[in-house]
């Protein structure tokens, strides 16, 4: 998505809230940029966070006397406090995104991004991350922390913020994605952008799957190719069945991405970016 937007001329920031940080490698950078932030590809900057470090940095920003801040970060009380305070680290991570969003934080000296993409954790943990601002408002009394949570919540509920739900066309992932879409919209009260169905097999096996090789099957290469065709065809049929189910149940625009048969991850990313760019930024029904 970042590569597609960048190719269209946008300045994009991608935030990876947890290690291991995979984005630099996927976009061709040799290693994450120094200090966890910087440009990773033309038009794409990355902010690679470690919740523990982000939390300590926040504390330093709140405590004017550096020596006290350092002593606090090392103290057992602080460590236990961070462990006890529900969602505190997650809030600080979202707070970082909010700072960039509001133009109060620059990434390696760069600001004014056209789009910020947060690569959220998988379903259960992702929901936990997104409900942190509300949890903070419920747990803490009026304080700098709740003011931070309120600002993060405003960002998440802004008209320009969307939660895209990404899934595979398989039974369990589709169930999970539909549940996530519902939770996001109804429980968390955030806008759902698209339901993106990834990894769809193209119809390459269709013609050969219906063909009977007969005695030619004795050649292991022909038998192998025929097995591959029936495998691709059966997989595609199974996926189409779940895609239909997703289409019938979702209230979000549906977007489809093909399975890219490549062992090179960067090639896969480039291919998907081209596909996303072809579908356009309007995010309309694409499959």
């Amino acid at each position: 998505m970042a590569q597609a937007l960048a190719a269209a001329g946008a300045r994009v920031l991608v935030v990876e809230p947890n290690a291991p940080h995979r984005l630099p490698g996927l976009l061709g950078a040799a290693a994450p940029p120094p200090e966890g932030q910087g440009q990773v590809a033309p038009g794409i900057w990355g902010l690679f966070l470690d919740p523990e470090i982000a939390m300590a940095a926040y504390l330093r920003s709140q405590v004017r006397v550096r020596a006290i801040a350092e002593r606090m970060v090392r103290s057992k009380i602080y460590q236990r406090f961070v462990a006890a305070a529900p969602g505190l680290k997650e809030l600080i991570v979202l707070g970082k995104v909010m700072m960039v969003y509001r133009g109060r934080h620059q990434v390696a000296g760069v600001g004014g991004f056209d789009q910020v993409i947060l690569d959220a954790p998988a379903t259960g943990h992702g929901v936990q991350l997104l409900r942190v601002p509300r949890l903070t408002l419920d747990t803490f009394g009026e304080s700098p922390l709740t003011r931070e949570a309120r600002r993060v919540q405003e960002m998440l509920q802004a008209e320009s913020t969307f939660v895209d739900v990404v899934t595979l066309a398989e039974e369990m992932p589709v169930n999970e994605a539909l549940e996530l879409e519902k939770t996001t919209r109804d429980l968390l009260d955030f806008q759902v952008g698209s339901l993106i169905v990834n990894g769809l097999c193209p119809p390459i096996g269709e013609a050969a799957a219906a063909w009977d090789p007969g005695e030619l099957r004795a050649d292991p290469r022909i038998a192998g190719a025929h097995y591959a065709a029936t495998w691709c065809d059966a997989r595609r049929r199974m996926q189409q069945q779940h895609l239909r189910r997703a289409r019938a149940a979702t209230r979000a625009p549906l977007e489809c991405l093909p399975f890219v048969f490549s062992a090179d991850e960067r090639e896969v990313v480039a291919h998907l970016a081209a596909q996303l760019r072809a579908t356009g930024a309007s995010r309309r029904e694409a499959c």
Binding site: R71, I77, F140, G141, E142, S143, P144, T146
Partner: peptide
Amino acid sequence: ILRTLERITGSEF
């Protein structure tokens, strides 16, 4: 330490 944490999170917490 506690006073600082209290300032950030509020005394209620």
